[in-house]
Write a protein that binds this DNA or RNA. Structure first.
Lengths: 209, 209
DNA sequence: AATGTCATAACACCAAAATGTTATAAAAAG
DNA sequence: CTTTTTATAACATTTTGGTGTTATGACATT
């Protein structure tokens, strides 16, 4: 069982100290750095190279998201756990996009926090199943295509797919072995059904944007 | 504590029976249907309206994904848990896109299965943190923009954003208070930097496709 | 048998986009 | 202080895209 090196970025002194104590007091874990703001963390973490960084969301000055973005860019293998009181979608997605792989709430018990750190280090993404549901919901939302596309015939969908890939009309005609005039015809019908007047708008609808 | 009604779709007789026994033998749970294929499930589940459906991936005839897609379309509040031996990305994403909210492995212990069912019923998305990591990774991958975009000046990014929204050159000129000739110039430079030769390709790069 | 939908095709017209060339002034970089 | 980058602008030419109209054969529905 190797020792997991951990750094903490958290502006509240009490919470920071408590976590530091917990981690250093537990076998298999070592807290090698604790910072009260993002700027200090950005300066020191490159020397410390911890396995796992626990990051608060709200920090004075630069916020935790920005801090993760910068560090993750330099050290892609470093693992980040967002540790926050917020459970709203925006914050969750911002953290994950920035490169956090774990997202747990501050109210999490000490034992669970340690488990989550180990889990993160071993390649998991610890998060409550409530938070997982938000992620899954986002996933599902952008998976389902625009219902307006259902009105298109299969040939029209095929044409639209070609349009979305940036082919010229004559290239589409060549690819599908039809005349360019037929392509025009289909495109016109597609535009009518989708209520758009340009290729870009049609493609945007195709990709649900 | 209300009773959670559960239906099982699983072709292996032993596993199906074992799960049925487990669920019916546990307080707070009731197995109100068990089917050995998707076709039977599709026929009976609309009458039973279970809270939760446990779905196997591989079934004879129609597969579990298709079965979820159809049921979820009709009964959006019904909760689906994928119960499988597979842990590969494709299968996970297919299940989630189809409308499954939980994804757990068959080797999960009886106690954990019951917990997962309750969790799912109460609005969570039970999944192992290994599986969560796959979902998060997918999320992160499509969040990071194409590095080629970094080569664009801020003005060019602004123009590209307008292009992506389907505005005509003259509309962009109006929106940004510049001449249409300048728009042309910028678009030309954008195309060069992104190595594309059409608006649609540029927009596709902009959206990382 | 009549009606509707779909995929195919042609022609004309105008609008819009892409290409090529040239140029100027401000700002940033060296 | 020169060089480079950036944002601005104009003009000519060619290619591509969008609209309107019309038409035909295959199939499916009524």
């Amino acid at each position: 069982m190797d020792i997991i090196s951990v750094a903490i970025v958290e502006d509240n002194h009490d919470i920071r100290s408590a976590m530091e104590l917990l981690i250093n007091g537990s076998e298999g874990y070592a807290c090698i750095g604790a910072f009260n703001n993002a700027e200090n963390a950005l300066e020191k973490i490159p020397q410390l190279l911890p396995n796992v960084v626990l990051m608060d969301f709200n920090l004075p000055g630069m916020n935790g998201i920005e801090c993760i973005t910068r560090l993750k860019g330099e050290y892609p293998d470093m693992q980040f756990m967002m540790l926050t009181v917020y459970e709203d979608d925006d914050k969750i997605f911002m953290a994950l996009e920035a490169g956090a792989s774990g997202y747990i709430l501050k109210k999490t018990s000490p034992g669970e926090l340690l488990d989550a750190i180990r889990d993160l280090h071993e390649g998991g993404s610890p998060m409550s199943s409530q938070i997982a549901r938000r992620v899954v919901a986002y996933f599902q939302k952008q998976a389902k295509p625009n219902p307006a596309l259902e009105a298109l015939t299969s040939r029209e969908k095929e044409i639209l797919d070609q349009l979305s890939k940036g082919f010229l009309y004559k290239e589409i005609a060549g690819n599908l072995f039809i005349s360019i005039e037929t392509v025009r015809r289909h495109v016109h019908n597609i535009y009518e059904k989708l209520h758009v007047r340009s290729r870009t708008d049609a493609v945007n609808k195709y990709f649900n944007r």
